[in-house]
Design a binder for these strands. Structure first.
Ligand SMILES: [Mn+2]
Ligand SMILES: [Mn+2]
Ligand SMILES: [Zn+2]
Ligand SMILES: [Zn+2]
Lengths: 148, 148
DNA sequence: TATTTAGTTGCAAACGATTTGCAATTGCAT
DNA sequence: ATGCAATTGCAAATCGTTTGCAACTAAATA
């Protein structure tokens, strides 16, 4: 296992540099994203935002997510079934394992898989722009058990 | 235009065994799926169905896709952006590479990746129920070229 | 600081994909 | 052939998301 440095991405600077105005709603949303440990969807971000500034609208959340995605500040995930979920783009690349029972999202990374993907694409004559690897599963139950 | 609807016999039997009524719309949809070489979405299946039987409705296509998915006869893919796309479940498992320029869907399979996924899930204490691996890329351009 | 103005907002209405209620129809067991 | 539950087509509803628009505001300018 390796440590992940809990770097708080300097969103505002990044955005200013991209010519984006730093408004009140955006500050709120950015702060929520900056210290979100999970992968919230737009509605969840909206709810958290309202706690800080009750004037924020859901439209603005959607617009802001699209904007942040556009400048590469966040990643959008479309996990099976549900709405888009987001996470800051600052962290190292990783893929996800979704717990079908609880909805928990577990992150993992396999350099070997990444390499194999490149290899496959190359053989097919392609360059990978991005990819999506999601494992859907359930907690392994102890093999000999009597509990429900 | 066409004579008999060449429904894959095992396909229909599979459904009967699952207690599903074989109706005219279902026969049409099944035949379309059986010899679809691509990964059509509901609307595309609907269009193809209408050519055979103009009375079929889009609702029925959606309902049938859900039913077929439920009994495991087809797989649903939710590629980036677009609507759900489908393919018969009979073929060997494979994953997909989507050409970002043309929309082409290329199938591939890596036993090594499949194994690594299992390994990762196991380490995290999970059993994989299913997974999704999609590569999005563009055709590799020859390094020294003058063509468009 | 006051002025200016293009970017941004909240709201409501529109949107595309998919689902659903319902009355009419149909598969299929009898 | 009969009877009835399963299935259908249609329209309306739903869900997540986007958009038009008039009011507002960040931030460049004077
Ligand atoms: Mn993540
Ligand atoms: Mn396929
Ligand atoms: Zn990856
Ligand atoms: Zn696979």
């Amino acid at each position: 296992m390796n440590e992940t440095l809990p770097i708080r991405p300097d969103y505002e600077g990044e955005l200013r540099k991209a010519g984006v105005r730093i408004t009140r709603p955006r500050k709120v949303i950015l702060s929520i994203l900056a210290d979100a440990g999970d992968h919230p969807d737009a509605l969840e971000i909206f709810k958290r935002a309202v706690e800080i500034d009750s004037g924020i609208s859901l439209s603005t959340v959607y617009r802001t997510m699209k904007l942040l995605e556009g400048v590469g500040a966040i990643h959008r995930h479309a996990f099976e079934g549900g709405p888009s979920r987001f996470e800051p783009a600052g962290v190292e690349h990783h893929d996800h394992l979704i717990d079908l029972d609880t909805g928990d999202v577990i992150e993992f990374h396999s350099q070997r898989i990444e390499e194999l993907q490149q290899e496959i694409a190359r053989e097919l004559g392609y360059d990978i722009v991005h990819h999506r690897l999601e494992l859907y599963g359930r907690k392994r139950r102890a093999k000999a058990s009597r509990g429900g």
